[in-house]
Design a protein around this nucleic acid. Structure first.
Lengths: 149, 149
DNA sequence: TGCTCTATGTCAGGACTTTGACATAGCGGA
DNA sequence: TCCGCTATGTCAAAGTCCTGACATAGAGCA
């Protein structure tokens, strides 16, 4: 390659830098979760269940930004490993409320500290005010994009 | 669903909101590019080539955060549609410098305004200072994550 | 009651991306 | 010069995720 770090116009585009940050975070999470034999979607599922037990498959899918089908296979894998449990029959409607097992809770704890370390590292060079502003700005972006075309 | 918009602890995590924003942007770009028969990676490739003509396959892959193999199939598709051109033989080393054709440039222009409209909408409710802060904060996060573990 | 509409769980198929591997072209030091 | 070392382009295989489709359960309304 000819130039090492030439600043191009793409680096001024919010979308580009957003994508860049998301990919960097994803990769860092991936390597942090590998020793625990967890993928990022699996961890996201556990984290959500830890904070809000009894979520159904569809609710978990929306919460982790994947489809119901993908979440279904994730849950199957976690179920086979004994990390989560779903009742055989639906207590209401067709929703199968999922809960963490003790093993799942233990796994979540260790994974959670690893991920929290990643986030800490990511925000290490940000002042508390900057971090707060980042959070608010991103939330505002999400709201703006959610509106009608 | 029981609760509509209950604010959970996950919404306070920077990583979660970052992912949320990236997915929202990706989806918005997807629907905006569909009428032009372009996928997001294809558009990203065209945009990069428009700003820095002559980039090689590997350089484009790094710039769009995918693997060389994925970028190879993307380039093949764009080449078959006559939007980009690569020399049959490498002028230096093994790199094949890719450039936009006139049709590719036209396609890029229309796609670029559509995407810029999306970014404009995303940042609509942000003050210029907030937008500047967001850009800087994200760049700082990328740098922090890039450091050694 | 009966009908429609929405939402959920699940199965099959396909599209896209990544991992792994290989041959080759420059680069730099012994 | 020669030998490693890195980087590039490409092929094959695997994995991951999504789109499409179906049957079913509850809510709302005539």
């Amino acid at each position: 390659m000819s130039q090492g770090e030439m600043l191009g116009p793409v680096d001024d585009a919010v979308g580009y830098v957003l994508k860049q940050a998301a990919v960097a975070l994803r990769n860092a999470m991936d390597v942090a979760l590998r020793p625990l034999h967890l993928t990022v979607p699996q961890y996201a599922c556990l984290e959500l269940l830890g904070q809000r037990p009894g979520l159904s498959n569809a609710e978990l899918a929306r919460g982790t930004f994947v489809t119901r089908q993908s979440m279904n296979v994730v849950l199957r894998g976690l179920e086979d490993r004994g990390l989560v449990t779903r009742p055989a029959t639906a207590p209401r409607g067709r929703e199968l409320p999922t809960v963490l097992t003790q093993a799942g809770l233990d796994h979540l704890r260790t994974a959670s500290v690893a991920i929290r370390r990643i986030e800490k590292k990511m925000c290490a060079d940000l002042t508390p005010a900057q971090q707060k502003g980042l959070l608010e700005a991103l939330a505002t972006c999400v709201r703006s994009l959610a509106g009608t075309p």
